[in-house]
Write a protein that binds this DNA or RNA. Structure first.
Lengths: 148, 148
DNA sequence: CCATACTTGATGTATATACACGTAACGTGA
DNA sequence: TCACGTTACGTGTATATACATCAAGTATGG
């Protein structure tokens, strides 16, 4: 395998991991900046959204849905728990299970964060327009639908 | 700001940060898996590519190009340096500057990694096809071109 | 020449991420 | 009922990421 300049340029332009990671670094920074008044990072905001969508869901299930390792979700949850934004409850039938629920404090912060999220969203999407982003998002989901 | 189900579904489908982060988690896992025999993660492979492309470049410059915080690059470099894949050299004129150069060991690992990278690349891109990915990548770059 | 502002990179701290491995609880067949 | 495999989650460890802050070198106006 050659290591010449042309080859490296081609890899930089085409590598899916590199291009996605770079984009997500930059985009996450924009959202984190916007959410700063709430003390939330966009990762945490996304988790709150998923708890509202799927209340009292099991962690493994949630992790699968988020395309995230179980243990990653576990640790990300602890951060929100420490801040009192979510509660973990042991399952009734199966005592191994942990159900996650957003607290009233969590709801408050979430509602405070939503307009800030929207501002970041508009700023970022504004670069290419909603239609192009909708198409892009669809393609992205298609790209990763076969993985894992 | 409402917190109803519809709203949350819409946020999940449209949030740029969430969709990019999710995609990059899944994609990175695929590449990391493929690169495992080399002990490299795809982030490290990408760094090696950039050192070949821009030999002896300054860290701040490189970080800017990679859309990465200076301090992130600094720490990621240390990992490669510990493994002896890159060397850091103090600048001649400006003693603050650090120039990064890939070592011969680094080249060896890079050449070993390249066919494995290609395999992951084909697996991931295969899901949608090269043309659609090329278009997608262009849109992605356009999306983030205004940030930072 | 020097005080000061600016540049370059490193450190402290915190979160995000995943793999390998460990532990407790559940289910099941003998 | 109990031994064993399976399932659900946590821990240890390592890397990735960024912000706030610090230290040192450089540039510049006086």
């Amino acid at each position: 395998m050659p290591m010449d300049r042309e080859h490296c340029i081609a890899m930089g332009r085409t590598c899916v991991a590199y291009n996605l990671r770079r984009a997500s670094r930059l985009v996450s920074q924009a959202y984190d900046q916007a959410l700063k008044p709430t003390g939330l990072k966009v990762t945490q905001f996304s988790l709150l959204v998923s708890f509202v969508l799927a209340p009292a869901s099991k962690m493994a299930q949630l992790a699968q849905w988020l395309g995230m390792d179980r243990t990653t979700l576990s640790r990300n949850l602890r951060v929100l728990e420490k801040r009192g934004l979510v509660e973990l409850e042991q399952g009734q039938q199966d005592r191994r299970e942990l159900k996650v629920r957003i607290t009233s404090d969590g709801k408050k912060v979430f509602e405070q964060a939503t307009p800030l999220w929207l501002k970041a969203q508009e700023e970022v999407v504004g670069g290419i327009g909603q239609e192009r982003w909708a198409e892009l998002a669809k393609e992205l989901r298609s790209l990763v639908s076969g993985l894992k």
